[in-house]
């Protein structure tokens, strides 16, 4: 019997392996004002459907990024925890990947991102159940976008249909566009040449996207060891997003 090559199967995330990563993000919770501009920008860029009030109250809304906040204490000593934008962490060791029976949740060796391959997905939702960050969303229905709202669709992004899991792609279409342009001009992609939809919209500049493998990049220059942390670090998922604490 042929031995299974996990690399070939795209299940490389199953093997614990430290790596530097290629694309990464820094989110400064001290600056995030919770204004939701990133949520709207992401939805517009990525053809995300709106689900309506009923499905939204079942927790079926499809945003790829959400702003979390929790309460601490009671009035008048009540405090809201810092706004926390939560999106796919693009873990190096992603828990969603090994559980997919059809290899729709796979790791991209070229970009070091977690992918969701829509045409493979059969909707088992195992990946969503195994994601410690709960950032995967499922299309419970074919959500209608009545004419002429469909004119706004971004042609660079697949429109998903019912029964498919989806999640943040780090705006892979923008990565490809930038890489393609750079290649055409015979150079490397420059840091800051392009950014994700959420980072581009963010009025407070709380989200910075860029290259992790370039020590001169903004995401690397910004790192503040005393404030930086990663979500659920202890799980060993090796996320590609670093959060900065308030203060």
């Amino acid at each position: 019997m042929k031995p299974i090559d996990l690399n070939e199967m795209g299940a490389i995330g199953a093997i614990a392996q430290e790596a530097e990563g290629k694309w990464g993000m820094v989110i400064d919770q001290d600056l995030c004002t919770g204004c939701q501009a990133c949520v709207a920008a992401c939805s517009m860029e990525n053809n995300i459907a709106f689900v309506g009030e009923e499905d939204a109250s079942y927790g079926r809304s499809l945003q790829w990024i959400r702003i979390e906040r929790f309460w601490e204490g009671e009035y008048p000593e009540v405090k809201m925890t810092p706004f926390q934008p939560m999106l796919c962490q693009h873990c190096h060791n992603a828990p969603c990947e090994p559980v997919c029976p059809v290899f729709a949740a796979v790791h991209s060796p070229a970009e070091d991102l977690n992918l969701q391959v829509y045409n493979r997905c059969v909707g088992t939702r195992y990946c969503a159940n195994n994601c410690p960050y709960q950032v995967r969303v499922f299309n419970w229905r074919d959500y209608e976008r009545p004419e002429p709202l469909n004119n706004q669709f971004n042609p660079d992004v697949t429109v998903r249909r019912r029964g498919i899991m989806e999640k943040c792609t780090f705006c892979l279409q923008r990565i490809h566009r930038a890489e393609d342009l750079a290649k055409a001009e015979g150079r490397e992609v420059r840091d800051g040449e392009f950014t994700t939809a959420c980072a581009q919209a963010c009025p407070a500049d709380a989200i910075i996207f860029g290259r992790l493998d370039d020590p001169e990049s903004r995401v690397n220059q910004l790192s503040k060891p005393d404030r930086g942390y990663q979500m659920l670090e202890e799980l060993g998922t090796v996320p590609r997003i670093t959060y900065f604490k308030e203060g």
């Binding site: 795209g10 060796p109 070229a110 991102l113 992918l115 391959v117 992004v157 697949t158 792609t169 892979l172």
Partner: peptide, 12 residues
């Protein structure tokens, strides 16, 4: 080869 066989090269 890594790039050309990557799912994310064509599917996103």
């Amino acid at each position: 080869r890594t790039k050309l066989l990557d799912c994310g090269t064509c599917h996103y």
